[in-house]
Nucleic acid binder design. Structure first.
Lengths: 153, 153
DNA sequence: CATCATTTAGTTGTCCACAATTTAATTGTG
DNA sequence: CACAATTAAATTGTGGACAACTAAATGATG
């Protein structure tokens, strides 16, 4: 069994996190092009996906689905509201909470978004099984990293 | 053979790009904790890794290694310079180019960074083969996505 | 050699991520 | 019931990604 020289470790770790970073940004590039017509950024698109799937939600729940806090969501939602895709309304029964509701335009936009996933999957040049397996692996990785962050902090 | 309902595609695509996004941000969380002592952010650490490995480089080359342009690097390098880790000097033979050079402090910081990779790998809870395979897959994914972006654009 | 195209950094503006703090509402406990 | 602790959003400040543009230097071509 051979041992990796200490000096090489600085290269190896670069490659895992960096490969991930690069892939994530490459996705960003493809989405940017595809979403331009819809007038959405990629994070805005993710928010719309959650709303299309789950219906109206308070900011808190939205944040749980997306792992984002109000510091990120508040201004983003304000922009979606300006774009007329979403309304924000204080909840009647708990006035701390703000309900995010799709407008008619927001609902209608879903039709035009339907072709995006197919084109994204085509762009990956992966078959569905491969995508599925990669996703599973990434979920495990994320869980491990989250746990490690908790420990250290 | 069964067909996936069109409405489900909006969920599937969320999962690939989203899983990647989540993993990338989870890495960010771990790095943030580990790099706090070194006074570096994660992107700053990536820049230092490249400089430690390749020595002094012009901004252009640095950007090629990291897939970043001057719009991102210029302010980041300014912060590294303020921190005393790096100097920026106009190249003598091509005055368009700016050489990024490690200072003594910048070189010295490498010692303290040596333990970071080991702790990151431990945090992933993956063995080295698995990491290697994941990296290969991600590189292929990135290449495919980049190619697709070129096509569309 | 004079001019035009290309290359390299930097700047500006928009959007996102996240930590830390603030404000207001709700919940829990004595 | 009063008051402390908790919770939900928003805000502020820092840092990063990227597009679009500018300025300056270099290279290429007629």
């Amino acid at each position: 069994m051979t041992t990796t020289p200490t000096s090489d470790w600085l290269r190896l770790d670069q490659q895992i996190c960096f490969a991930l970073n690069a892939a994530s940004r490459a996705f960003g590039g493809v989405y940017r092009v595809l979403l331009k017509d819809l007038g959405l950024t990629y994070p805005q698109y993710l928010v719309m996906l959650v709303l299309w799937e789950h219906g109206d939600l308070p900011v808190k729940k939205l944040g749980e689905h997306l792992r984002l806090d109000s510091g990120t969501l508040s201004p983003l939602l304000k922009r979606l509201e300006t774009a007329g895709l979403v309304r924000r309304e204080r909840s009647a029964r708990d006035e701390r909470s703000v309900e995010v509701r799709l407008t008619e335009d927001g609902v209608a936009l879903r039709e035009r978004a339907l072709e995006v996933p197919r084109r994204i999957i085509a762009a990956t040049d992966f078959d569905l099984d491969e995508i599925q397996e990669l996703r599973t692996r990434l979920d495990r990785l994320t869980a491990a990293l989250d746990a490690a962050t908790e420990d250290t902090h």
